[in-house]
Design a protein around this nucleic acid. Structure first.
Length: 599
RNA sequence: GGGGUAGUAGCUCAGUUGGAUAGAGCACCUGAUUUCUAAUCCGGCGGUCGGGGGUUCGAAUCCCUCCUACCCUACCA
């Protein structure tokens, strides 16, 4: 009973330490005030420290002293004196000053144990993290393939990065809408419809809808190139569709259904589910309102026959127009994107809109954002925050965009299948005695995860080189390495009698070994890693952390046996295993990656 | 011409927005396995952070300039 009350008290006191950096910042700011510093000019500048010096460091004394032209070391000494008189700080950490005025915090070993005891479940993590993005309603626009075509490698980054961002935002308390802005309208349909009517292979359509539709489009396109009369028929098909003729619309709907069905097969494999497929066609009757509003509020003007928006205050967009209606009178994607922005504001009440596309579209989305800002301001609407989450190319070994042997883009479906096959071969070799269905399940998880993780572990704004050997390796920053670490922990728990897992907190003795301390320290960094990932919308920040966590665990695992005689030692090591698994599984699941019980 | 993104070890990549002696993995050299999964771990080798200037206590990071690659730059998305 007493032990329980103490545990509860600890939990309460520890609550504010969930975000260690933030808690230290609070104390540092209070200390600055107490020490008589100009608090306007002082910022704490808290960051993880090099382990040789401490666990966390406060660097704010240096820029402060610079600004006020005083001695940084003296400032640091004043701050430390004030911090040391703060019981909340001095009971958990030892402070020291180093170099020109770095303030180092080294946590006491029992602090790590207390922290791990206070945040001992997925719920505790989630609850503390869910404040970060509470009250946000975010529409995330990602994937966005064209219909009637198979997806290829070029689509993977948007899907994988977009899904990770959705999960991260949800974890941090946001209400997320997943919207697939498919390209389901436009000129290719004339050629497709012509070929569909003349050359359809019904059997193929049933077995592989996207493959057959794509074949038909290419066929129609080729035939139209060769034969002027075919080209004319294609034009007529398009005219009929755009005129909204019943038969054409029916066929168009049929094509879309089949397309989405085909797309969903791949999304299922990647564990991605959309809330909406509001593609370009959805907005086609909303473009007139866009023209009217932008003209009415004086943003749009005629130029060379087109309706465009210039931004005179911008060095480049003063000259480079945002074309919202082409000179032939047709809309383009600027138009539908503006209509989309309006819809997401009005219908979804979005506080934030995130679009995940490749970096070539940077200019377009900058113009879209500038235009929306002015448009919404003039019409008295509250504009959602807009983030264009962009990414670079996937290259082959030669550093050029990755292609199949035939020179065509590699199909996403084929890429995933190859990953699963390769993973199967490896898993089978390592575990020949696993049952067949488990082998297949492991191969599926390892294969898909490896492809996803290869993408998520590199900075999205850079290009990266795709290499089977690298992404399926068990060394380095790869999915198999992380999954292996997780499954080793699972393996330990299979060897432990479940009755031994009770009251670990009261049985555990303080951490002693270097490996224990390193691992414990790393687990605490989960919070900071999550924050920086969310702030920058860069999933690789979380990947890097998870890799380091796995490394810290592997080092611990090799040096410190968990199942030992000493009850205190055993309990604290079990706690480390549990919390490592917790952070690892939470982190991987935020990246859209499933873990395995064994592999 | 204007703008953007990038250039870090032989290769593939990090580097928390100006902090301490620039870090990982691969490769190469070494050591650890009667073991809770060695699909692992410990150690070593490896750097003019594209070049040059500048800003300051302090620069891979900020400013200027040049070089290289890719992308955008009026009606594709």
């Amino acid at each position: 009973m007493l032990a329980r009350s103490i545990a509860l008290l600890y939990r309460h006191l520890m609550e504010e330490w969930f975000d260690v950096a933030k808690r230290i910042e609070t104390s540092a700011l209070a200390a600055a005030q107490q020490a008589g510093l100009d608090t306007e000019a002082f910022s704490a500048d808290v960051r993880p420290a090099d382990p040789r010096f401490g666990d966390m460091q406060v660097n704010g004394a240096l820029p402060y002293a610079k600004r006020l032209k005083t001695n940084p070391r003296e400032i640091a000494q004043k701050l430390v004196a004030a911090l040391e008189s703060d019981d909340a700080v001095s009971t958990v950490a030892d402070l020291s000053i180093a170099g020109p005025g770095f303030i180092n915090f080294r946590f006491k070993p029992e602090f790590f144990l207390n922290w791990l005891n206070a945040f001992s479940s997925e719920d505790a993590f989630r609850k503390s993290a869910s404040r970060l993005y509470a009250c946000e309603r975010v529409v995330v626009d990602y994937g966005s393939p064209n219909t009637a075509k198979q997806m290829h490698v070029g689509h993977i980054r948007s899907i994988v990065i977009g899904e990770a961002i959705c999960r991260l935002l949800e974890y941090c308390g946001a209400e997320v809408t997943r919207d697939n802005h498919i390209g389901d309208w436009g000129t290719p349909y004339g050629k497709l419809f012509y070929a569909y009517k003349v050359h359809l292979d019904a059997e193929a359509l049933k077995n592989d809808p996207l493959g057959e539709l794509e074949r038909l489009y290419k066929l129609g396109s080729n035939l139209a190139n060769e034969d002027e009369s075919v080209l004319e028929e294609c034009r007529q098909e398009l005219v009929q569709l755009q005129a909204g003729e019943t038969e054409s619309i029916a066929l168009w709907k049929r094509v879309n259904e089949l397309s989405i069905q085909g797309l969903t097969e791949v999304y299922d494999q990647l564990d991605v589910t959309y809330d909406y497929y509001l593609g370009e066609s959805f907005y086609r009757d909303q473009v007139a309102a866009v023209y009217r509003e932008l003209e009415d509020c004086g943003l749009a003007e005629e130029s060379k026959g087109a309706l465009v928006v210039f931004h005179p205050e911008h060095k480049r967009y003063a000259e480079q127009p945002f074309i919202i209606r082409k000179s032939d009178g047709a809309s383009n994607y600027a138009t539908t994107d503006l209509a989309t922005m309006l819809y997401r504001h009005e219908h979804f009440k979005a506080t934030r809109v995130i679009v995940v596309t490749d970096d070539r579209q940077k200019d377009h989305f900058e113009q879209l954002d500038l235009t929306t800002a002015k448009w919404f301001e003039k019409t008295g609407r509250k504009r959602p925050i807009f983030n264009h989450v962009m990414f670079g190319k996937i290259n082959g070994d030669d550093g050029k965009p990755i292609k199949s042997r035939s020179g065509d883009p590699i199909r996403l479906k084929a890429l995933i299948n190859e990953a699963v096959e390769r993973a199967y071969a490896i898993v089978k070799e390592k575990n020949p005695d696993f049952p067949e269905d488990e082998l297949e399940n492991i191969a599926q998880t390892v294969g898909v995860s490896s492809i996803k993780y290869a993408d998520l572990s590199t900075n999205r704004t850079s290009d990266y080189i795709f290499s089977w050997d690298k992404l399926l390796a068990f060394e380095g920053n790869t999915a198999p390495y992380l999954l292996y670490a997780a499954s080793r922990i699972q393996s330990i728990f299979r060897k432990i009698d479940p009755t031994e897992l009770t009251d670990l907190e009261s049985k555990a003795s303080p951490f002693e070994t270097d490996e224990e301390m390193t691992l414990a320290r790393k687990i605490l960094e989960f919070v900071g890693a999550l924050q920086v990932t969310i702030e920058t919308l860069r999933p690789h920040m979380l990947s890097t952390y998870l890799y380091e966590l796995s490394g810290a665990f592997s080092g611990f695992y090799n040096a410190n046996k968990v199942i030992v005689e000493d009850p205190g030692q055993k309990a604290r090591r079990i706690i480390l295993c549990q919390r490592t698994l917790l952070a690892l599984e939470a982190g991987l699941s935020l990246l859209g990656i499933k873990t395995l019980k064994r592999m």
